[in-house]
Design a protein around this nucleic acid. Structure first.
Lengths: 167, 167
DNA sequence: AACATGTTTCAATAAAACCTGAAAGTTTCG
DNA sequence: CGAAACTTTCAGGTTTTATTGAAACATGTT
């Protein structure tokens, strides 16, 4: 397989995967581009490679900075801004986990805590509701702890434990 | 907090969460409804509760059946079909993990395996590309194994191991 | 067969998400 | 200051995705 073809395909696939991780397609594609680039890229270069507009490039780069998985790089003597991606897959995953925890798990936990205060009026509906919410809360809290551990863990420690688990 | 209010809020929140799990909003809301219902519901009842059309209800119920997290129930003497959700949070999570693995992780693994065959022409670009792909592949494979274990695991065994991990 | 009861499909429509490009804004430097 | 170099914003246009509702389809029942 040729390089340009492989590159094309990876960017495409990354676009889809990123999408299911809560990024959007373009965001994920910019990220893929930066992942495989040997050097930081400017907005200009990104626009060109992906054939997207300046506004689009700008907005999605900002979103990536927001997620904390891309950073600005200044090159001495140049006024343009350049961008590079965190390349270590492990830190990348940790960062994504951190964001998703903040954006998704925490809000639902908040709601679950709120609605678990529903007044018990003795009807079956309420009883069932309380039961379901309790279970969900329990699960969500366990997941939250697990995620937190993941986020804080060292790579080697984590995988070693997991490998033990898998055996 | 009153029941109807709590119910409303939970359905709303579940809609959002479900969305970030790869379901769509309505699908997730139907699911929430079935989770807290004390009895199986008919299409009619679902339409009413969520104020959605028949077509919409039908399509999303089908999608939930497809994901394997909702099942049909027939009530003797009734012609209508009723639906109920798997209520055990743990099996639910397992089922979602199973589907997402199939729908997301496997496709990207396939691509990663393909593009890792990129011919090494000695340029820096190719070198970097091969390195990145190798790392990603490694990570994706580890995740795949972990997911598989999760999917196959017994609840108690899994959480016990995790609790040990967390300590 | 005609009817009643329920389910599925799908073309049209509506809503949401996304992208563009030009204009406005900012920073740097002579 | 004023111009050049670069970045950000945002109204309007495009694409994608979700929803409706009515017609077609099934499956009994009389």
């Amino acid at each position: 397989m040729k390089y340009t073809e492989a590159k094309e395909e990876l960017i495409q696939a990354w676009g889809n995967l990123g999408y299911s991780w809560g990024l959007n397609k373009t965001m994920a594609q910019i990220h893929a581009l930066l992942m495989i680039s040997t050097k930081p890229l400017s907005t200009e270069e990104i626009m060109q490679e992906l054939a997207i507009s300046r506004g689009n490039a700008n907005m999605n780069i900002r979103a990536l900075l927001d997620w904390g998985i891309v950073s600005r790089v200044s090159i001495p003597g140049e006024r343009k801004e350049y961008f590079k991606s965190e390349k270590d897959t492990w830190s990348l995953a940790r960062q994504v986990a951190r964001e998703r925890r903040k954006r998704e798990l925490e809000p639902i936990l908040k709601i679950l805590r709120e609605v678990s205060e529903v007044s018990n009026d003795g009807t079956d509906e309420t009883k069932e509701f309380r039961k379901v919410v309790k279970d969900l809360k329990n699960f969500a809290e366990k997941s939250d702890n697990l995620l937190e551990t993941f986020i804080k863990a060292e790579e080697s420690w984590f995988w070693n434990s997991i490998i033990k688990l898998l055996k």
